[in-house]
Write a protein that binds this DNA or RNA. Sequence first.
DNA 1: TGAATGGAACGTTAATTAAGGTTAAAATTT
DNA 2: AAATTTTAACCTTAATTAACGTTCCATTCA
Lengths: 229, 229
Amino acid sequence: MSKTKILYVEDEPFLGRIVKESLEVRDFEVRMVTDGKLVQSVFEELHPDICVLDVMLPNKDGYAIAQDIRKLNATIPIIFVTAKTQTEDLIKGFEVGGNDYLRKPFSMEELIVRVNNLLQLTQKLSSGPKESIAIGKFEFAPQRYELRKDGKAKKLSHREAVLLQILAENQNANIDRKAMLMRVWGDDSFFNSRNLDVYITKLREYLREDSSIEIITIKGVGYHFAVGN
Amino acid sequence: MSKTKILYVEDEPFLGRIVKESLEVRDFEVRMVTDGKLVQSVFEELHPDICVLDVMLPNKDGYAIAQDIRKLNATIPIIFVTAKTQTEDLIKGFEVGGNDYLRKPFSMEELIVRVNNLLQLTQKLSSGPKESIAIGKFEFAPQRYELRKDGKAKKLSHREAVLLQILAENQNANIDRKAMLMRVWGDDSFFNSRNLDVYITKLREYLREDSSIEIITIKGVGYHFAVGN
DNA sequence: TGAATGGAACGTTAATTAAGGTTAAAATTT
DNA sequence: AAATTTTAACCTTAATTAACGTTCCATTCA
């Protein structure tokens, strides 16, 4: 199995290096980003398993970054690491979608323990190995572009598969339309926006067999992939 | 919907009472246990949704209690609350199956935020039957944007659904108009205020089938969602 | 005191605008 | 050629804006 990937956003180079190296010693793959503006693109390229965010950054603060990340992925664990000790700051951290909040100075041991704890908590929900994702009565193998049900397998095209993966990763959560466009087509022009419509129609068609699944439109926002049981 | 149940183990009566009451104010159902030996039986009787454990207790310490609980339930969230500030103590807390560790003195706000965070994290993983809220003779499935009655389902739009959820969460209580505007539209400008009127009208229309339900205007304040039975 | 009056707050309905859905054909790619 | 992707035309629905109606309350003045 490949290493667990951590996206680490920190502008302080000295601290950043220590933390990065300490995590790497524990066999994590760490990608450190110092500029908040770059986080989105790195996130999309890396597909990390967990994010560790410093709050106070020059351009874009950690809270804003967390909100951006949440639009791309509703479930990935986010830990804030910050010198801000006020309870209000902590509350804000959880409000914007954070899952833990660690005050500086912290011990590396504590960070590692908390990272592992969150990974464990969320691993159970992400149904473990990403080989195949459960979608209601379907099973989706993203790397094979295959949607299975009752033994029958349907091959998906590239765009279909990427789009379905985004939905599958964010079951029962709101997904930002722009984020979807960016991830599938790389930009959100008018034509690609129509294009997204086309592919949503196709996926609805494929998923129609299971009535407990529904791609709900949220006008002006995006979609909500409702999956019952 | 029934309240979220917290099993709270604490031997210090003064602190215990404050914490218990603060949690109860937030609408949690709290069962406080002072003797570690009693935890198992209370746990089995109560079936709590989350456990908050003090570590230092006279007979049996919090770590041992956590291990007992883990034998009964592998996934229920456990938060330690303790005066022990050493990293080793924290590590031990996670080792025995804890999911968060809060050092005393802590703010109630922080405890509540962390409790809610864990509940949310584990709710997703247990993927349990996503709630549906009863509204008189209707049943409302917020995540499906669906309002059901006698088998018939009516699809709601995003705004309609969010608004109805606010009402449903506050049945038979006064709801502040401004708060509703902020939650649905994010601001309370004049136009959105007219907008709220429009959507209230729509919901009244949908809910007309059940005459025991009424959205009552409280001028200058907001609404009162009266639901009989 | 109490009926008239005016205005603020909310309700209703309809029109408009914006967003998205569907389908099919054209253009690519394989 | 077959499959996939993009473009395009047309359709449907949600959300907003607008116009006008109603209710309630406060103030005034007979």
